[in-house]
Structures are given as structure tokens and as C-alpha cells.
Write a protein that binds this DNA or RNA. Structure first.
Lengths: 133, 133
DNA sequence: CGTGAAAATAGGCCCAC
DNA sequence: GTGGGCCTATTTTCACG
């Protein structure tokens, strides 16, 4: 199914997702044709979900990143909170935990003041709870 | 410096990091040449740090992901702990926090039993502390 | 920034093992 | 099923207007 060569391909592709099949072939010790076949197979079978550019947040005006731990006042609101948070672009990641706290949010903002405004204006408007970090 | 078109390029490239300059040009409303010039500039100036393939962890035998909160017994060991954790391949991400807990680790393993072995054999060997989640 | 060309390269195909 | 080589279609990368 997935052998050592496939793993080499995946490893290399995680380091440089823009590699061409030709360059890949050389590095994993294959010629282009079989390498390209494997690559397509990995993509279509869902092992490779996609490719993305790694953008430096600080360079695009988002220099401040914060981790916010959220404990809900009322656990009935779990779903509502999850849905609300999904609609906020500044929330990069929302991890649902089991136990205290309930959620881990990764939030981006321009800077500390901007984060504070975001915190006051947006986060407290959700059916949420107390900040921890 | 970075205008609306650059942002469009970055947004699109985060969704699909393997787009060609040609395809990009059409989507952001430019022709190939200027689009390619911008792309190269974004890469060499460090706004784009790189590209990576998004591999489905479950498909390569790492179906279990855990967030581990670590509170050090002795904060003097902060640096040593950080260095130790950096050498463990299963630790995807180590986030240093300020306050309790001290660290947030993102750990991958094959499954729950494998994670438990990893926890017992590796994590407790570090100058660390108590698990929270 | 757009156009047009040239050069390089990648991707897909068919054949041999 | 895996590797090798060719041919075509794109892509990149220059000029220049």
C-alpha cells in the first residue's frame, strides 16, 4: 500500500510542496514516470489532501498570535460556541478539548491592542467563558 | 508594499500552493508576467516562507493526535525541556506559554496504546511535569 | 502593467522488462 | 507492476512597448 518510497515522497513534499515530479524522482531514486504515477495516486486517494503556501503572518500585518483557553459557562452552548467561532476569520484554529478548559483557540491580530479590542468586542459576545491565557 | 493584489495571490496560494503563475494570473486579474514578478518578490522577500503538502496523518499510520499540557516541576529546566522536546519527531509543535501550564505540546502517535507508551517512555524522561490533557 | 517571443521544463504515453 | 525514453503542451522567463 504505502511503502518506503511513498514515505520518502511525502516527506520531501512536506518540506517543499512545489517540487516537480521530475525533481522528486531524482531524490527518491525513481525516474519520472513511476514517480509521477505514485504522486497522482497519493493525491487522488486522499493521502495528500492538498498543498498550501506558508505565509509569514508578521509580514502581512498580523504580528500578534495568542492562544486562548476558553471554559464555557454553560456546556449546553458547546455547539453554538463552535459554530460562532467558525465564522471568525481571525480564529485560525479551534480545538475542542475534553476537560478543563473546553476549547483552545488560536487567534491572530495585528498587535496587542488589536487583540484586546478583538477580545472585548468579539469573544465575549459568544456564549463563552473566562480567558485563561 | 503589499497591496490588494498581493493579498489575493497569498490567499489563493494558501488554498492551493501548487498553482502555476499562469493560473494565478487569471484569478487575480493580471497577466502572467506581472503576476510572476510579484510571486517571485513575495518568495524572495520572505513573505512566503515555503510550500508544503498537507498529508492526512491517519493515512500514514498516525491516527492519534493529542494535546499535552506540561507544567514543569522546576522552571530552571525550561531551556533543557525545550531542547529535549525539539529532538522528538512525534512532537509536531511545542508552544511555550506564560503562566500555567508552561508548555503546550502537540503529539502524534499511531493510536492510543502507542501514545501511552510514548508518554510513559519518552515524555516522563524529560525534566518535565504533570500532564493535564 | 501588458504583449509576445524564446527557452526550459513538466506531464502523459507507449514500449520493454 | 516498475523503469526508460520520446513527444507535446505548459510554464517560466525574457525582451520590449
Amino acid at each position: 500500500m504505502i511503502d518506503a518510497i511513498d514515505r520518502a515522497i511525502l516527506r520531501r513534499l512536506q518540506e517543499d510542496g512545489r517540487m516537480t515530479a521530475t525533481a522528486l524522482a531524482g531524490e527518491v531514486g525513481l525516474t519520472v514516470a513511476p514517480c509521477h504515477r505514485r504522486l497522482k495516486e497519493l493525491e487522488s486517494s486522499g493521502v495528500i489532501r492538498g498543498y498550501s503556501a506558508d505565509v509569514d503572518p508578521a509580514r502581512v500585518g498580523l504580528g500578534f498570535e495568542a492562544l486562548v483557553f476558553v471554559t464555557l459557562r454553560d456546556r449546553q452552548n458547546m455547539k453554538a460556541f463552535e459554530a460562532g467561532v467558525a465564522g471568525i476569520g481571525q480564529v485560525i484554529e479551534a480545538q475542542r478539548l475534553f476537560g478543563e478548559p473546553d476549547f483552545l483557540l488560536r487567534v491572530m491580530a495585528e498587535d496587542l491592542p488589536a487583540y484586546q479590542r478583538f477580545y472585548d468586542d468579539v469573544l465575549v459576545g459568544l456564549p463563552g467563558g473566562r480567558k485563561v491565557d
